[in-house]
Design a protein around this nucleic acid. Structure first.
Lengths: 207, 207, 207, 207
DNA sequence: TATGAATGAGAATTCATTCAT
DNA sequence: TATGAATGAATTCTCATTCAT
C-alpha cells in the first residue's frame, strides 16, 4: 500500500520536530548558544545528525525559532496580564506572577532569553533587541495610562519601562540561580511588586 | 583607565601587552567573545600571533584579565562614588554619573560587561556572576545604611540592589545603542536618579 | 529517441522509470554528474526519493544506463548514416547531419556526452572511453574503405578518425552554446563537411 | 633574535606553496576535481589540513590557480610556436610539437585541461571556456593570414580553428592514455601536421 | 509500488595553539 | 622577545542510501 501522508505521519513529524526543539532548549540553556553543537542537540534528542538538517536548515535558524517562540510566549503572558487588569498594582502583580510562573515552569527556556550569549551572531543579537523592545513597550503602556490618570509621579515612561525590564530580569535571573522554594518565589513576587510600585511612584498606596 | 599604562604597568616591556589588551577590548566589544579570533586581536594590535601567546597563555585568560580589570575599574568608580557621599540622593547621583562617564568614555569596555556573550565558557560565566555580585553588594550597602536611618521604606535591600543593577544596566545599554549627545546623557542621569530614589522609597525628597 | 517509451519500454509500469530518466538527463546536463543530486532528479520527475531507488540501484548506475542509451542512440544514428551511403562525401554529410539533428533536438542528451564531468567516478570514465572508442571506429571504417579505393590520401586512418571525432565534438559544443537558427546550423553542417573532406584528403572533389 | 622575514623564509614559503600545487596537480589528474579531497592533497603534499588553508582560500581557488597557470603556459607555448614561424606548415609543426612536449613532460597538468571534470563548479566551467576560446583564437590567426595569402582554401577560419583544437586535443588525449615511446610520439606529431595541412586545405604542399 | 523520514559517513573549513627560527 | 608557518581537533553541513509504513 502506498505511503499515506497528512494522517498520522504528519502528526508524528510535528511531534519529532517539537521533541527536537525541546532537546535543543535544554542543550542551549545548559551550554549556551556557541558551546552547544549540533551533535550535542541530536544526541540529546537521540536522532542522527542528518535528521537535524531535515527539520531545520541550520543551528542559527533553529535557535531563531526557539527564541521567537519563547519570546512570544513570555511576551504574550506578560501583555495579557498587563491588559487584563485595570489598576496598576494589579497589573504589576499579575505580570510579575506570570513571568515567575513561566520562569519556574520552563527555566531553561527563560534562561535562554536572559543569558543569550548570542552576542556574536548578528541575526540573534537583532532578535534579542527586538524582543526587549517589545517587552519595554508592553510595560510602558500601562505606565502611560497611569501617568494620564495622575496615579504615578511625572516621569519619562519609556525610561522607567526600560528600568523595570532590566530590574525584573536581573531578579528572575538570581531567583533561577538559587533554586527557590515555591514559598520563597512567592515572597519574591511580593517584593518585586513593591519595588515596582515604588519605582513608578505610585501615589495611592492606600488603595 | 584600566589595563592602560598606569603606575604599575608602565614598564616599557608592557607597552605591547597593553596595546594588545586595548585591541582586545575593541575586538571583543565589537564581535563578542566567540566571534573574536586571536587573529583579529593581533591584527588590531598590529603584532604577530605568536606574540599573543608570549604575553597571554590563551584567549580565555586574556578575556579573564580584561574582564577583571574592566569590572574592577567600573566597580571601583561606582563604589568610590557611593562611599564618598553621605546622603542617599548624592550617592545615587554620583554613582550613576560615574557609570555614565565610563560608559561614554569607554563604550567598548562597558559593552564587554553588558553583552558578554560569555554564556558558554564556564570560567567566564562565573566571573560575570562574581562581578554582578560585587556590584549588587556595592549598591546594597548604602541601602542598608539608609534603611537603618529610616530614610527609605522598609524593604529587602538585597532585592532592591539586584533590581537597581539590572535597571541601570538596561538603561545604559540603550543609551549606548542610541548614541546620545552629552546633553541627552545628562538628562538620562537625572531620570535614572529619580527612578532610583523612587524605587528605594526615599522618604525625604524635600532635602 | 533513447530511454523514451519505445517499443520495448512501453509497458505502463515503465512510465515512471522513463519519466525519471528523462528528468535525469535534464538535470545531469544542466548541473553535471556531481552537482546533480538524487533529490534534484526526483524533484524534476515529481516523485519521491524512495521511488528512485525502487527503479535504480544507485545514481551511478542510472547515469550508466543513461549514458549507454544516449551513446548507443547517437552512435547508431551516426553509424547508420555512414553505412547507408557509399560515397565518402555522402557519408560525411549524412553522419554530420545526423549528429547535428540529435544535438539540436536533444541538446541535454548530447551535452551529457560532451561535458561529462565524469572525470572522477572510474566506471563512468571507462564508459566514456568506450563510447569514444566506438565512435572513432565508426568513423575509421569508411576511411579504411576509401583508403583502399585510393579516394583519399594515404594516412593513419585511426589517427584521422580520432581527429574528426574531436573536431566535430568541439564544433557541436560551440554550436549548442551559441544557440543557432536552423539556417546557421545548416551552414555549419556544410562547413563541417568541407572540413572533413579536406582533412581526409579526399581526392575527387569534382565528383 | 627576532624573526627575520623576506630572506630565506620567503623563498621557503614559495617553495612549499609550489610543492603543494604540484601535489595538487597529481591528485587532481589522478582522481578528478571532485573526487580529489583536500585531505588527499595535503596527504600527498605531506602537510596538515590547516596548512592547505594557510596557502589557499579553498579547493576551488587552488584549482583555479592551477588551471590558469597550466592554461597560460600551454597557450603561451603554442602561441609562441605559431608566431615565431612564417610558413603555415612550420607553424603547425612547431605548435603541435610544443603541445606534445608539454603533454609528455607534464602529463598530469595537461590531463587537467583535457578532462577537467569541472562541469559542475560554474567558475571552473567558465574558466575552461575562456581557455578554449583563447586557444581557438590562437589557431585562427595564422589561418586568417594564410587565407589572405591564398595559401589555403577559402573557409570559415573560426570553424576550422575550433575543429583543429578539438582534433588535437582528442589525439593528445589518446596519446597520453596509451603511453607512447618517444619515437611513437614523434610519428604522431608528423601525422598531426599532415592532418592539419590537409584540414586547412594547404595549397602548396610542394614547399 | 510508493513514500519521505531517518541515517551517518565524509567533505570543507575554522581557529586556538605550538614551535623552529 | 618576536615572528608567522604549521598543526589538527573540532564543527557544520551535504547527500546517497535505507526502511518502516
Amino acid at each position: 500500500m502506498p505511503y499515506r501522508s497528512t494522517d498520522t505521519t504528519r502528526r508524528k513529524k510535528d511531534a519529532k520536530r517539537t521533541a527536537m526543539m525541546q532537546a535543543a532548549v535544554r542543550v542551549f540553556a545548559a551550554k549556551g548558544y556557541h558551546a552547544a553543537t549540533v551533535r550535542d542537540i541530536v544526541h540529546e534528542a537521540d536522532v542522527a545528525v542528518g535528521t537535524f538538517y531535515f527539520y531545520f536548515p541550520d543551528k542559527e535558524t533553529l535557535f531563531g525559532h526557539l527564541f521567537e517562540e519563547t519570546a512570544a510566549f513570555l511576551l504574550q503572558a506578560i501583555e495579557q496580564a498587563l491588559t487584563s487588569r485595570t489598576s496598576l498594582p494589579a497589573q504589576l502583580e499579575a505580570a510579575i506572577q506570570a513571568y515567575i510562573n513561566v520562569a519556574f515552569y520552563e527555566p531553561a527556556v527563560v534562561q535562554l532569553l536572559l543569558v543569550g550569549g548570542m552576542g556574536s551572531v548578528p541575526s540573534l543579537a537583532e532578535r534579542r533587541v527586538e524582543y526587549r523592545e517589545k517587552l519595554i513597550r508592553a510595560w510602558q503602556r500601562p505606565l502611560l495610562v497611569s501617568l494620564e490618570r495622575r496615579e504615578i509621579e511625572p516621569q519619562n515612561a519609556r525610561r522607567t519601562a526600560e528600568a523595570l525590564v532590566g530590574a525584573y530580569d536581573e531578579i528572575v535571573f538570581h531567583l533561577l540561580a538559587s533554586t527557590q522554594t515555591e514559598r520563597e518565589a512567592q515572597q519574591a513576587v511580593g517584593e518585586m511588586v513593591q519595588f515596582g510600585l515604588r519605582a513608578v511612584g505610585y501615589l495611592y498606596q492606600a488603595e
